[in-house]
Design a protein around this nucleic acid. Sequence first.
DNA 1: TGGTATACTTAACAGTGTTAAGTTAAATTA
DNA 2: TAATTTAACTTAACACTGTTAAGTATACCA
Lengths: 201, 201
Amino acid sequence: MGTKERRAREKEQLRRQIIDAARELFVSEGYENVSMRKIADKIEYSPTVIYLYFKDKADLLDSACQETLLGLLDTVELLKRDKSDPIEALRKSGRAYVEFGLEYPQDYKLTFVIRPQFQKGLGLEEGSVGERVFSYLRAMVAECVRQRAFRQVDVETTGQALWSAVHGVTLLLIDFPDFPWTATDKLIDTVIDTMIEGLKA
Amino acid sequence: MGTKERRAREKEQLRRQIIDAARELFVSEGYENVSMRKIADKIEYSPTVIYLYFKDKADLLDSACQETLLGLLDTVELLKRDKSDPIEALRKSGRAYVEFGLEYPQDYKLTFVIRPQFQKGLGLEEGSVGERVFSYLRAMVAECVRQRAFRQVDVETTGQALWSAVHGVTLLLIDFPDFPWTATDKLIDTVIDTMIEGLKA
DNA sequence: TGGTATACTTAACAGTGTTAAGTTAAATTA
DNA sequence: TAATTTAACTTAACACTGTTAAGTATACCA
């Protein structure tokens, strides 16, 4: 009687196969340079089978990056727990954020640049991944203010400003890899540290 | 004997027609959704004629973006002359940069997000307009350091960090217009002022 | 064993960027 | 003025793309 369950399991397996193949190709070749046929070749199925599991190519990419984005949430959430040094926690979270973007540039750009272009109003609505990432950032800023490590700044605006800064450096490093940046690590640190310095009590 | 000159002038005219048509379409429809055939239709020539004037679609995009950059350079350069208060000059330039991006959001994204995706490695090389915009920013930071308004920071890295910050807030405001930002003006000021505050002597 | 639903494939459509070859018209030369 | 060269532009095609309608085979259930 478990045939139905086995069937569902097999379907789920193929779904996973597709996502994994797509993600691998997206990351290594870039979203634009990956065709549905290439993905199909990799999993040794016909291209059309993908459309039985995903609405279209954008939907596939959407699904492909969701789990890595949830990984970012996990990382940031871990760092939040340490309340003894909220500034250091903020600094580490900022670095983790940028490093995540550099590790999965395609995923990052899809979520924070490409998706909002085609799905206006979406991507940061209540409960979405983006919104949840930001709410963690806000909580950390609040902790810095509460412990008087930061001066009495507006938590909401400050959170948004910090997000702007890390978002900006992430995208510049992704989009202009050949620009003569001083040194990736140094630049990231300078962005984050300068913002933090400007917020201290 | 001016036939050669007239010919050259006519060539230049068609070149301009192509760029104008392309830029209009890129901005209104998005780079991806504009085909060479659409551009050709608009100027009432065959698609192939474009390839006599531009290497490929990315090269055409590149030319279209250059005008955007020149506009940005003009906007920002107006503020450079005032050396009496270099910090205020920097602040105003930062605001001008972001406001330019918000005034021409499609052009801004085309230049700083879409183009690097298709013209890898290009856009910021020696002597380019983009490089000139950045070198202007660097000069202002240097002036702040020279006048001891900033502490003895690394001018190169600091310039890049400032660029990251304004780039980030510009893109977030463009891409997530429905996000509950505190207030556009306040956010922009907070980003710029916090960075400046973190750099002061 | 017969019928049905499911999983998957084939073949095609309408589009893309790009190029080799061909045409037309203008400028130059004899 | 007539022949020739040269430049500007077009036609037709190639090798792709995302996507879908229609068809096939297979596993399940009665």
